[in-house]
Design a binder for these strands. Structure first.
Length: 454
RNA sequence: GUGAUCAUAGCUCAGUUGGUUAGAGCAUCAGAUUGUGGUUCUGAGGGUCGUGGGUUCGAGUCCCAUUGGUCACCCCA
């Protein structure tokens, strides 16, 4: 038997890590609910055809497929061998795999809306906090199993939704103490206008993929990539002008206006962005980024991305945008929506690196009762139960051993108070309370323990 | 999927051109200390050096393979 291990890219979360993660998750959930979003959960696995083809060719490769059960049934051997031949050629065959682990929360949500649109009240605002899986090579900030926290509004085209989502980002990061975040916005319409003006509406994807890399690889390499994709020199010069738009939000808007504002789609995109900027409270750290493109092709309007503080070298810690016709692929056309997502695992890594978790998270048990004998611990147990009924978490040490051990246990578990009931206290119906942080201790009647302020 | 790099005690790491019985700090356990923890002192346990092959009189050290971690590319949260 070899050493036990866990699959590549997955993690165990120990007690203190879970507490910190819950701090993040609970913060996000509470803000979602504050804005009127309702919880939804979907299965870990979906039918494979629900997921395939929704995330592009690259995405399809990263979907975890689940092998069917019963493939070793001798009666099916011939069929299974034939099917497996097709799998070797890169096809999905129902006989081998018909389920897959979910890859994100948006597509399962779209599937849910398509299945239930008759019962739902629109606009439907749902949030969802669940793990998703990707068969990617793990690296910094990237795992094979990770949590997504999504909030989406479907059935409404109002920009008010975008405004609310931007505020949710702000509220969550403010509550987490991650005030150095930065929300970047752009509109897909601006990018469409850019592509149209470059005579390459069909080159939209190539253009967006290339310019998205600007801050990573630099202007020259972006231009090279565009040239490789077959764009003409004057088109690249135009894109270069676009990429050089910078400055304050107002300056960027002005720059966009002069470059693409004369087209219908460009004008529409600029208006979307302007609306958001005008209605956002100045405390919200939001800025226009014309190079923001986002890979997923289903976005159609405003797109968001949240950057972590620069010093931590982490990719985005959240993203989202507007999409039209999300459920169209499931046979229910005409339902538009907009949504955002939080990358909890990355937020955790960033907060850990910046040491932003409050110390108070580490306390779980407030009081440890010492165990100093049968009669003594019997009294201690009764008192402990009363305290527990009052909502104070406490423990009785599991065996009667020397003080030293019991103190050290309290210390290791970060328990701030101990209650000592030994033979002396037993006789006098008292108990001794010691605060381990201050070192102070006092002896009070047992009857007063319930009133003690721990 | 492509590439780089690493793997030695529970943890963080030393380990010389290949050479006797593989070390340290921290942690753990026991004692100093039978009703007062954190500090200190003393002692102990703990390793088929990731796994499998190979070269060699001899391998933690060199070679090959394999697994896993980390990082980068692609893509993404």
């Amino acid at each position: 038997m070899s050493k036990p291990s866990i699959p590549q890219g997955t993690r165990d979360f120990g007690p203190d890590v879970v507490q910190k993660r819950n701090f993040i998750l609970n913060t996000i959930r509470s803000v979602f609910e504050l804005y009127g979003f309702q919880p939804l959960e979907t299965p870990a696995m979906e039918n494979i055809e629900t997921l395939m083809g929704k995330y592009g060719d690259e995405g399809d490769k990263l979907i975890f497929k689940i092998l069917n059960n019963g493939l070793d049934n001798p009666d099916k051997e011939k069929q299974v061998r034939e099917d497996f031949e097709k799998v070797l050629q890169g096809k999905n065959v129902k006989g081998i795999t018909e389920r897959a682990l979910k890859y994100d929360l948006t597509i399962p949500f779209a599937r849910y809306v398509a299945m239930n649109h008759n019962q739902l009240t629109f606009p439907f605002k749902r949030y969802q906090v669940q793990p998703v899986w990707r068969a990617d090579r793990p690296q910094k900030g990237r795992y094979r199993e990770f949590y997504q926290c999504d909030a989406d509004v479907v059935g409404s085209e109002s920009l008010l939704n975008e405004l609310e989502l931007a505020n949710i980002y702000h509220d969550v990061f403010a509550k987490l103490g991650l005030s150095d975040y930065k929300i970047k916005i752009n509109s897909r319409n601006v990018l469409v206008a850019l592509a149209e003006l470059c005579g390459g509406a069909d080159k939209m994807t190539d253009i967006t993929v290339a310019i998205d890399k600007l801050d990573k690889i630099g202007l020259e390499k972006v231009k090279n990539e565009l040239a490789q994709k077959g764009l003409a020199t004057e088109q690249i010069i135009f894109i270069e002008k676009y990429l050089k738009i910078s400055g304050s939000n107002i300056e960027i808007i002005t720059g966009l206006q002069s470059l693409i504002g004369h087209t219908d789609t460009g004008d529409k995109g600029i208006k979307e962005i302007s609306y958001l900027l005008q209605h956002c409270d100045p405390s919200i750290n939001i800025s226009v980024d014309p190079t923001l493109a986002r890979g997923l092709n289903y976005y159609t309007g405003i797109i968001f991305e949240v950057a972590a503080p620069k010093e931590v070298k982490m990719g985005s810690i959240g993203g989202g945008g507007r999409y039209d016709n999300l459920t169209g692929t499931f046979g229910v056309p005409g339902i538009a929506g907009v949504g955002i997502s939080f990358g909890v695992d990355r937020i955790y890594d960033v907060m850990e690196e910046l040491d932003l978790f409050p110390d108070s998270l580490q306390v779980s048990t407030k009081v440890l009762f010492f165990n100093l004998g049968d009669a003594e611990s019997k009294v201690a147990f009764a008192l402990m139960q009363q305290l527990r009924n009052n909502g104070i978490s406490c423990e009785l040490f599991h065996e009667n051993i020397k003080f030293d051990k019991q103190f050290k246990y309290a210390e290791k578990k970060n328990i701030p108070n101990v209650v000592i009931i030994g033979s002396k206290e037993l006789e006098e119906n008292t108990c001794t309370i010691k605060n381990l942080q201050t070192g102070k201790q006092e002896t009070i009647p047992q009857a007063s323990l319930m009133k003690f302020a721990f």
